[in-house]
Design a protein around this nucleic acid. Structure first.
Lengths: 110, 110
DNA sequence: TATATTTATCGTAATATTGCAATATAATTA
DNA sequence: TAATTATATTGCAATATTACGATAAATATA
């Protein structure tokens, strides 16, 4: 008990849930927002921007990276992070699918 | 420790994280997928569709409802659920904002 | 009114998440 | 090579999530 039964769902459902989970924290939304603003930055910049300790930011970046929402490349002692448009596109396609398939335009459809 | 510091983020960031959190489970994605297919249904239908107990489905529906992704109305002894297009629109707008603001089209931007 | 039907709530066990201090790692610079 | 800089990892405490049996609540039906 307490364990998500991933085997019961499709791989697409599991993947989308994983991407949503990566965005399911205001700090990680704030990181995405900041990356959108500055295009690319290093971990230290985010530590300066948000009110969280360096290990906490590092952990959040790891989670965003693990689902492919961001990517990082080594630049000297630092690591440069940016948003991965491919994963954003995947998410966008799903939300668009929901929006277009919605037959009920009423606020009270049932 | 262990508590999300919501005060440090904007209300928009907190709201988006809450909507993402509601989608951060394959069972809830599966519920949305099912609702998309059948347009509207009752809790019992989802219990028959997914491999989860009734209290578990009820809990998942509660979470989707709490962020406004779905809505329910009483129909006799049952409750009819459907997707709320307003909240979907809110999410769509955010993803679209990310997609359009993305300056880096390369797979390796940094 | 008793029974059936449908959903919600409560309580609880197992597991996951969050945040950070301490520390490790890895590349650069003096 | 020693010190510096930037990030990752480890370990831990506090809290949250997930799942379900038992049960409550609310409406419909016989």
């Amino acid at each position: 008990m307490g364990v998500t039964k991933t085997i019961y769902y499709t791989s697409e459902q599991n993947e989308l849930a994983a991407i949503a989970k990566a965005l399911a924290h205001p700090a990680r939304i704030a990181i995405i927002d900041y990356l959108l603003k500055v295009n690319k930055c290093i971990c230290k910049d985010i530590v300066n921007e948000l009110s969280l300790a360096q290990p906490t930011i590092s952990q959040h970046l790891k989670e965003l990276k693990s689902v492919g929402l961001i990517q990082g490349s080594i630049e000297g002692t630092a690591i440069c992070y940016c948003i991965n448009h491919k994963t954003v596109g995947l998410l966008q396609a799903y939300i668009l699918k929901i929006a277009t398939q919605l037959k009920c335009e009423d606020t009270n459809c049932c």
